[in-house]
Design a protein around this nucleic acid. Sequence first.
DNA 1: AGCGCGACTGACACCGCTGTCAAACGTCCC
DNA 2: GGGACGTTTGACAGCGGTGTCAGTCGCGCT
Lengths: 350, 350
Amino acid sequence: MTRRTRTKTSQTPTIRDVARVAKVSVATVSRTLASPDTVRAATRERVENAIRKSGYRPNALASRLRRQKSDSIVVVVPSIHNPFFSNVIRGIENLAHLSGYKVLLGESQGNQERLDSYASMLARKEADGLILLGALLPSILKNATDDERSSIPVVTACEYFDHIKLPNVRIDNVAAAAMATEHLIRLGHTRIAKITGPMHNPLSKDRLAGFRQCMAQAKIKVDEELIVNGDFSAPSGYAAMKTLLGKPMKPTGVFCSNDEMAIGAARAIKETRLRIPRDISIVGFDDIRFSGYCDPPLTTIHQPQAAIGEMAMQLMIEMLQDEADLSGDAVRTIVLPHSLIVRTSTGRAD
Amino acid sequence: MTRRTRTKTSQTPTIRDVARVAKVSVATVSRTLASPDTVRAATRERVENAIRKSGYRPNALASRLRRQKSDSIVVVVPSIHNPFFSNVIRGIENLAHLSGYKVLLGESQGNQERLDSYASMLARKEADGLILLGALLPSILKNATDDERSSIPVVTACEYFDHIKLPNVRIDNVAAAAMATEHLIRLGHTRIAKITGPMHNPLSKDRLAGFRQCMAQAKIKVDEELIVNGDFSAPSGYAAMKTLLGKPMKPTGVFCSNDEMAIGAARAIKETRLRIPRDISIVGFDDIRFSGYCDPPLTTIHQPQAAIGEMAMQLMIEMLQDEADLSGDAVRTIVLPHSLIVRTSTGRAD
DNA sequence: AGCGCGACTGACACCGCTGTCAAACGTCCC
DNA sequence: GGGACGTTTGACAGCGGTGTCAGTCGCGCT
């Protein structure tokens, strides 16, 4: 027990030290750790004892260089702070942990350079794969042929990209938006407003499309005056609602393309002393954690956030495992089920 | 332009390839990248051209093995989903990115094994440092002498640990709690309830202590009946409030040890048709993002969440830089300023 | 001419582990 | 007893960078 001096003199033990103590070759130590069943029991035991005695911890850096794998994947998210994304991240992290992958977290902040810097970690072998949660595309992917693109281990989730095929996990936003709209229609609403997300965003387009589709099916004419753009933020929902409340013919129902805008909109409504849902019903989208604690608790579309994250990671793992036919199969898109959560922000239209 | 075949035949270029093309040694290429000013301009240019031509990207894995640095730090958080922590993470990530560090995200989920598994990344050189945001301590740190402990690059933030000195960043929870309490007292409240966090938690103790201290100073006797334990979750705040509302002498003001519990408590109050703040005032703690969007918007103690994260990372970087006197200096504790945010969940007591 | 010196460059060992290949070792069977 | 064959084990060559140390070179000075 020479621990007193150990701290100063001896380095952390390497596989060679273990080999020396166990009187075997380094290869055998490596095997004992990686595939114990190929090592004779007696030998294995000697090695394990040596490992225990020396307090050996394999150096991941060396292993990674040798294997040319980083055992990590970068997850780039526009904003860590967004409760929707943080739940997706949780799903990713969960499966990653189970599968021996590390999660490198990157916040793009809607900034192309920052995003590119995270994406470049692939080229530097700092990460084996890239999971993209936002609506921004790294330059490497933009300026690449389909062939090149399919050899880059990337998975997109939640958001997806027009004209660019990439493995993707999401819900059916059109159907989900239609479902939300139908809920309002069933409650007797006909003057239904829509607060959209940014319109360059495929998701926003889908949610608006679902709205229109459902309205058309119900033979209700959409009043274009009641379609107002937001940017997914609460303040934008607040502003949009203010606009709507200024219209001569106020809506009796509002469908917001996400919960944050719905929360903003609710505040605008309450400020004008109108009641939710007595005067105006509100439906959100996402089912973020706080939407159940709003006042009133928000009726919304539930997205299986953690499941989306897990599925994205699952896809990633599969790509990384059989990298051979990475470019072989068709690009995979996985659609997960959504559902309508009815709380008390919606009620019958009078 | 033989890109057709490149994909199949040639590997990604290494520093040796660049050296060959530029007709210099690998050392010179390395120098050109690491300290360009030690390389003659003409040579540097040759190298830079070769790099550009070959599309060389340095292999981080190799560099890390050589330097025995992973350029990464693990951040372990009890729950990614907690908006308070996610804001701290953001602060960490921000500074990390600026300083060339990668953030490895780990969610402990209050699970010792999981936490230990993340902490073990230090021993495996997968990470250079460890930032702990939760109230759980990894076994390595528990079972270590002060000496050993001081040689482990770890920083704790938000939470801290009794009896175990570790570099720490936080606010003055006692003073902050007193400030919140004083706000209620100034509004004329005397029957003030306290919903605490889990009492094994130093933070919870501090916040309760601050409450008692302020009450004592105001010469108001604390009614022990009005002190109820929660666990920092909204449901626990809801339950605690229900208990309080069942008391013969209801409180007119409630100070909750965090915003989530305050939100739960607010719901309980509203369910019994009492009004906030007319009948009962509520003060929270943390100033999470949604507390401004609650109904009513929550009066609370603001914690500089991003700044806490940045400061923690700053401390980490300093420790990593001068590892020489890592054990030299006294363990650092940094106290950041808090503030009271008055919204509309508090009002005068009648 | 010879020397000293500073600026620049190259050779090379090595970081610690893994995969390959061949040798050694049993074991079983004829 | 010896050969065939499957199982264990060891030697060794890298993975792709970086740091050290020793040149090489050009130039000013004695």
